[in-house]
Each structure stands twice: as structure tokens, then as C-alpha cells.
Nucleic acid binder design. Structure first.
Lengths: 194, 194
DNA sequence: CCTTAATTAGACCAATTAGTCTAGCCATAG
DNA sequence: CTATGGCTAGACTAATTGGTCTAATTAAGG
């Protein structure tokens, strides 16, 4: 087993720790110990804790988000189908179901308190939302939905209510629970079907 | 202005601090300094930080939640009206709109990591959800909704999607945004109207 | 091989953390 | 007035925090 480059290893461990314990509750020393990397190395690669986590957000968290929430419309399929398959993918993702959306959890912790994180995280959130809105817009243009559907507003609705279920207490979370939730969303969307 | 009893003052300040900064990022010393209360007094009233915050949860946070989310059906009104008025109340509550639901935020931070908090917070969450389910059930019995509505599932749906919008980044939150969200929920509910 | 720069290593530091402890204050019951 | 018990006061502690610093090691280019 080839040794993983220091920087990459640090980003991996940082993701794991921050995902579950949050930014503040994760100490640099813990990360270092779990990674088996001495302090000097870390501070050679990153200016400090905040920069390490910010890099982790860009290089680990965001790519994962793109994986989870890609709303690609498959050839010939409807927008509803594309959404259904995204939801199904999420429901099969164990960590996402148990611990919730890492982007949202970090946003809940840090947005009210740290401007840098707020900007970075909400920008990405809006970007994902915009993709979703684009998909819905396509549905309108294709005649799947009628003009009374506001693609922007509904994209926000989907994103935020999905965040809400996902980031529940692990003791209340399950994939079947999530599936029920996503059915309600699809029912609402169906109101706007032509 | 009469001096507030030590214990009560501590609970007030603790709520403010934990609400915005979270449990971990709030230090005992900060609370003490803001409250102008010496350490000995605090440790006389509470065994430690965790117990202080747990008491705050019971005596400040939970009562506030009951205020925010009371789903009382007014004389003669429909369940839909009761919900609409609850949403309106929430949308007028500035801190709730800006910083989100304090119960949910604490749950997001601590549930995966602390069993005591998880139990206390999710029990309360379920209690509120049960009240909401009861209201919906009444709607079914009154003939406002048909039998295909699962009051339990829909109550969860309302609660969790509402949490999702509320606890967004302050920079993305506004009462008008929340109102749009609540309209979608009511539209979904309307599907089940008789 | 030798020089140079990148990286590793970890001892060290000041500040902050939650929590302890003892001395004294102060209200009230006798 | 005095004795008692609840409460206040804050100095102190041990552990942990994020961060610095310098020396040693390693890798790469000539």
C-alpha cells in the first residue's frame, strides 16, 4: 500500500472529522494524530486550521456534493424521473442518510459566525440550486410542467426541505424515512404537471 | 431595575450564546463574563457546562419552541388555517428567520456526538411532531382531508422541511423566502383535501 | 556525488478550556 | 444579636487549544 501524500491524507481525515464533529469540536491535534502526521508538516502545507478546512471544503466536500446531487437528465427521460433517480441515489448513500448533508451541517454551524465560510458555503449551495432550477426550467420548456411553476422557487424548496430531513438526528434518520419525504416533494411537483 | 436571580440570568445568556455560536464554541467563561457572574456562583447552581446547557434547553429553549410551534386550531377554523397562522407567526419571528430553529441547530451539532443531548432533543422534536400529527388527524376526522393522508408522515414532512429553510445561512434567509416555502407545503397538503 | 529546496519532526509556547477550592458575604431563623 | 446555610467571589489548576520555531531528513537537479 503506497503512502498517501501528506496533503491528501490530511484533507481526507479532516473531512471525516469535521463532517461528524463539526469545525469547532475538531482539533488540529486530533486530525494530526489520526493522520499520523506531525504538526510541522501540516503547517507547511496550510497556514492554519481555517485554511486546512477551507481547502478540505473545496477539494473533498464540494466534489462529493456534486456527486450526490447531480441532476443530469438522462436521454429521453422526464425531469420527474431525473429527480426520482437522484433521490434514490441519496437514499442509498448511508453516511448521507445517517449524518446528513456535510455542506448544510457546516453551514448551520458556521454561517452565522464566520463570513468566509458563509460566503464559500452559500455560494456553492446556490450553485447547486441553480443547476436544479435549470433542470426544472427544462421541464417547463419541454412541456412537462406548466408555466405557473417557478423553477427558482421550487428548486430552493427541494434543496432546503431535503437538507432538513437529511440532517436530522441519526436516531430519527433512515432511508425509508427519506424516501417518504421525497415522495411528498414529487407529489407537490406533480401539481404543476401538464 | 431589579437584579435578576443568578440562575435565571445564566440561563438567558446561555441561550443567547449557544443559539448563535453552538454548544462547543460557547465557553463557560464567555457566558460568565457576559452575565457578570463569578465562576463559583455558576458551579454552585450547575454541576458543569453540560448541565447548564441541558437546563437551558429545558427551561428556555423548549418553552420557546412551544410558543413558536403551537398548532392550536382556533374555534371553527380549518386545519389549513391553523397551519397558515402558525407559519405566519414564524415568518414574523426575526431571530427564527435569521438564525433558524434553535432546537434543530443544536440537534445538528450534537446529536451525532452526544447521546444525552440526542435523546433530550429528539424526544422534544417527536413531541412537537406528534402534536402536529394530531392536528392533521383532526382534519381527517372533520372531513377536511381524505383518508389517504398519513398524518404522521405529513407531520414529519412539515417539521423537517420547515427546519431546513429556517436554519439556512442568514445571508440566504428572509421571511419572504420562508413564506414561499410554506406555500409549497400548504399546496402539497391541499392535494389531500376533500 | 553535492547542493539546494522542500518536507518532516516534534519540542515548545501563550492563550484558553472546563473545572476546583477556599474564604467570605449575606439573608434569615432563632 | 448570633448562628447557619445558601450563595458569591475569584485565584488557581491541569489539560487542551491553535500556532511557532529550529533542526533533521529527504528528494531532485546539476
Amino acid at each position: 500500500m503506497k503512502k498517501q501524500p501528506t496533503r491528501e491524507k490530511l484533507l481526507d481525515i479532516t473531512f471525516d472529522e469535521v463532517y461528524i464533529h463539526g469545525y469547532t469540536a475538531t482539533s488540529v491535534d486530533t486530525i494530526l494524530k489520526k493522520a499520523g502526521i506531525p504538526k510541522g508538516s501540516m503547517y507547511h502545507h496550510f497556514k492554519g486550521k481555517k485554511e486546512l478546512v477551507l481547502a478540505m471544503v473545496q477539494e473533498r466536500l464540494f466534489p462529493k456534493m456534486e456527486l450526490f446531487f447531480d441532476f443530469e437528465k438522462k436521454e429521453g427521460a422526464t425531469v420527474t424521473d431525473a429527480l426520482r433517480s437522484t433521490f434514490a441515489g441519496v437514499s442509498r448513500n448511508k453516511p448521507l442518510i445517517i449524518y446528513g448533508c456535510p455542506l448544510y451541517r457546516l453551514m448551520v454551524e458556521l454561517s452565522p459566525v464566520d463570513e468566509t465560510f458563509d460566503t464559500v458555503l452559500s455560494t456553492k449551495a446556490m450553485q447547486i440550486q441553480d443547476n436544479l432550477a435549470l433542470l426544472l426550467q427544462k421541464g417547463i420548456e419541454d412541456g412537462e410542467f406548466n408555466e405557473t411553476l417557478s423553477s427558482k422557487d421550487f428548486a430552493a424548496y427541494i434543496q432546503e426541505s431535503t437538507w432538513g430531513v437529511l440532517s436530522l438526528s441519526p436516531s430519527l434518520s433512515s432511508s425509508s424515512h427519506f424516501i417518504k419525504h421525497s415522495k411528498f416533494i414529487l407529489e407537490t411537483l406533480a401539481i404543476y404537471k401538464n
